[in-house]
Amino acid sequence: MAGALVQSIHRDPALFYWILFPISIVMVLTGVLRHYATVLLQTAPKKQGLPALREQRSLLRGINLRSNSSAVSSTAFAARRHYLVSAYKDGTFLKDPDNRGKPAGNPMTDPAAMEGMMGMMKGNMAMMIPQTLIMGWINAFFAGFVIMKLPFPLTIRFKSMLQSGVATRDLDVRWVSSLSWYFLNLFGLQSVFIFILGNDNAANQMAQQMSQMNPGAGAGLFQPGQDPDKMFQSEAENLEVVEHEYILKGVEDRLLASIE
């Protein structure tokens, strides 16, 4: 019986033209604006000095040696290990050897770290401010409107997603409220932005949130506040315990077995 009964609400078609369209258009435009605002606010990543680069790459070299040690013969490996371990322990590669042993400074006082945080703040602001404004705008003008009906049935779980701002228990889930339409737009406009702005746009906030999950995945090994000397020491220990195996050992038999 419940299936046969179709709820129908007589809506003014003006609702459609004066709420649904404005919200969608405003959302797209904000996305575009946000993209350009982020581009303008971006500061070029600060260039690292030569010592910092050396510090990073040298540590990376140790890691490479550890993980790919099988590629070289054991004599070559032993020589490299000896060199790297003693250099790591002496702190040869450190950016500023004078600071060895001192506790790492507060990241708040480090100007480089501050700059990074400012960049993140700017990105966040470019996202937060328009979101707050539009949310306020919709709440002030369109709160409580039911603006459209989805052409397919949904389960009751979607009620909170599609009917926020309309507190009725018996309304069919297929009806969408204006506030929910805003949320749907907020998360669902990704492909529209790709179409308008190209692939790597800053309009979409989902992508931004993703990048905040793991900041600096490729940016560098050193996070601000971490003591590079400690990292060198632990890498030296790691290197010392590596068990070396040469990949060329028995390669001729492997090869013959595979091609004969």
């Binding site: 013969s73 060329l248 390669v251």
Partner: peptide, 12 residues
């Protein structure tokens, strides 16, 4: 012998 093994690895 080392060179031979390197070539073996390469074709492997």
């Amino acid at each position: 012998a080392e060179a031979t093994r390197r070539f073996c690895r390469s074709v492997e």
